[in-house]
Nucleic acid binder design. Structure first.
Lengths: 219, 219
DNA sequence: ATGAATTATAAGGCATGCCTTACAAATCGA
DNA sequence: TCGATTTGTAAGGCATGCCTTATAATTCAT
């Protein structure tokens, strides 16, 4: 298997496994890549043969030791390049993910580590995802879970679709911004209302589907 | 054909055509890539079919209009990344070429142009090769051609092999450095003797094979 | 002008990584 | 527990881009 293919699969598994112990079903990978189930199944078997993942039939895949290390390396590269693209090249943050997807496979470990030094060893990508070996904060909660009146700081947008990123930027709900929940909209209409705190007097109505993807550190 | 493959071939043709009108023989490409003549021939035919090159049987290939434009874009990306790697990441210049070879296919036009801006629109790669649309200086001459006693400034190392680049760096014969020819060694022993000018009192004996690859702007 | 070297072309092969169709097995909800 | 849904497996296909072997055509130097 080509290294790039391996890396793409490992990166996908890493992203999709919410819990370290929960195997990622092949259906998730099928959906993630847009490949046929048969193709994914084939690749997963090869990945297992080569020791990258453990495959539990009818349950899904988990990363092996080497697989985890490789996945972390890939995600590290990806997110470092995202930082470079947004911070140094001023690429819009909704384009950074895709552009970094190509660069992550092209850069060697040496180049990546030099890039990390150049960038000042950042801890997170522009969308707030931790750059391995940095790990996800345990206290992070979803915007949907924040009680009315509570304040919090935006820490991450995930999953990061271009459209959602553009909206989040327009709402000024980007990592580091503070907000307070003004009111909870009707869950049926799928709208929640929030107000960014203090310095900026802005009130935005965030559709439920996007509020689900905005993660916070409570104040 | 995959775009990356096309770009590699066009880049090779661009580099190998000394004169715009002289077709590049397939044997040069065979040698450049280390592929079999048959494989190169196959690819060249496909490139011709798709309009990237003109193929003159038994003579070689020349770039078409679109092929030339594409080749220039590739070389531009390549050399901009080389500049980034050496200038911003402090990657040794003999490693920059290889590392850039992967990045050049991964970066989009938009990213490349932002990179150019970030780097301050450089005119040449770290090894002195012009970054398109910049063109090669016509007054450039080879170290072998410089008369004894004449002074000149190093402008370029080409062809750039890692070993040669390491030697050139050790000799401090890098683009921008001034030198004067002290004496001409015996061509049979393939050694020429030069002395870097003024500020640094250094005398080095440059083997003929490497002197052939050091290009100068006469003082 | 002829023979050696170069170049072209034909034919068949191989690994990769996708695809579809078809069918079997396991899981899970009602 | 039974049937629908999900998941696994087998079989065959396809494009890419390399490879080797073998043979034909051309070029070039003597």
């Amino acid at each position: 298997m080509r290294q790039e293919r391996v890396e793409e699969y490992l990166g996908a598994v890493y992203r999709l496994r919410e819990d370290a112990d929960a195997p990622v079903p092949l259906s998730r990978l099928t959906e993630y890549f847009g490949f046929s189930p048969v193709s994914v199944h084939e690749m997963v078997q090869k990945l297992e043969e080569e020791g990258w993942v453990h495959y539990h039939p009818y349950r899904g895949v988990t990363l092996s030791g080497v697989g985890l290390a490789a996945a972390m390396a890939v995600l590290r590269r990806h997110r470092l390049w995202e930082r470079f693209l947004t911070d140094k090249l001023a690429l819009p943050w909704d384009e950074a993910h895709e552009a970094a997807g190509d660069l992550e496979h092209a850069a060697t470990e040496e180049v990546t580590e030099r890039l990390a030094t150049f960038l000042g060893e950042p801890d997170a990508c522009p969308h707030g995802a931790p750059i391995p070996p940095q790990v996800q904060s345990a206290s992070e909660i979803c915007l949907c879970s924040l009680p009315v009146g509570a304040e919090a700081r935006v820490s991450r947008i995930a999953p990061e679709t271009p459209e959602r990123l553009r909206l989040a930027a327009a709402w000024q709900l980007t990592p580091g911004r503070d907000l307070r929940v003004l009111a909870q909209g009707d869950a049926a209409t799928e709208v929640l209302v929030y107000r960014a705190a203090a310095e900026m007097e802005r009130t935005v109505a965030v559709p439920f589907e996007h509020a689900q993807a905005i993660w916070l550190e409570p104040a």
